[in-house]
Amino acid sequence: MDDLAKILRLVQFADSALPVGAFSFSNGLESAIQQGIVHDAETLKAMVLSATKQAATLDGIALLVAHQAARMSDLCTIIAADEASYQRRLGEEMRLMTVRMGRKLGELGEHVAKTPLLADWMARVRSGTTPGTFPVGLAIVTSDLGIEASQAFAMHQYGVAAMMLGAALRLMRISFLETQAILLEVNGTVEDLYEQVRGGTLSDMRNFSPVTDILAAVHVKAHVRMFMN
């Protein structure tokens, strides 16, 4: 029964309807569509695959490091992972996305997990002494709920893809059937990505994605915007 409860916790916190504000962001997709880089199912799939690879080598490592630290109640390492995740983002909108979602997840976690570690982290987020990024918040909450690090990593990867595909349905001419086919294919890459980063340290985090950074910069000054990034 404990295994079944963990499965349901995974489903609950991986749900795209989780009230952390993911629906407000497109992870750069809106600009990509406006600039003609994404214009059909194939180009959408290519961008989502690129985004999930980038997420694995950046936030994925921060999440895994913070998850291990949370199990040992090591707040110093958690804060280091938080700073590393935030500082490696160049665009202001990308930073806004991660801290806004991170804070909302932390507030949600305070109501369901209610652990001293989460309370300490959120106190520092509110005081401005740590940014409060989404992957680190997810690491703390999932650790508190008994969800394994690999499963938390998979949840994060799924969230990146689901966010972008949900935005695509509102931004371009594409069907639910096509986005679900893309999601299934993207989900199939998660094990390989996990194996690539599972032993990574904070110094291994990398975020080289110049096209995404340019699109994010373009989006800041866009006259017509549906999403916050």
Rank of each mutant, 00 (worst) to 15 (best):
E42A: 15
E195L: 05
G36H: 12
Q34F: 14
A161M: 03
E92P: 10
A161R: 09
T133V: 03
S31K: 10
R9Q: 05
F13Q: 05
M94W: 10
V11L: 14
A152E: 04
I147K: 06
S16D: 14
N27C: 13
G188I: 04
V220A: 11
G188W: 00
G36K: 13
A51P: 02
E195R: 12
L10P: 02
E178R: 11
L49F: 11
A162D: 12
F227W: 02
T130C: 10
V48W: 00
I214S: 03
L96E: 15
A216Q: 13
T142Q: 05
S31I: 08
N27K: 14
S150R: 13
E93V: 07
R126H: 12
G36V: 10
Q157L: 08
L169F: 06
E83P: 01
A217H: 06
M163H: 02
G109A: 07
L165M: 07
V220E: 07
L183H: 04
Q151R: 13
P135Q: 09
V186D: 01
P116M: 07
E191F: 04
R71E: 05
W121A: 06
L10R: 13
V48H: 08
L108M: 08
L8K: 05
L90E: 15
L117M: 07
I182V: 07
K53P: 02
L169D: 05
L10M: 14
T98F: 14
D82G: 07
L49N: 08
S26W: 03
G146V: 14
I214T: 06
V160K: 04
A22F: 09
Q68M: 07
D2Q: 15
D59T: 07
G159W: 05
A139F: 07
A5D: 06
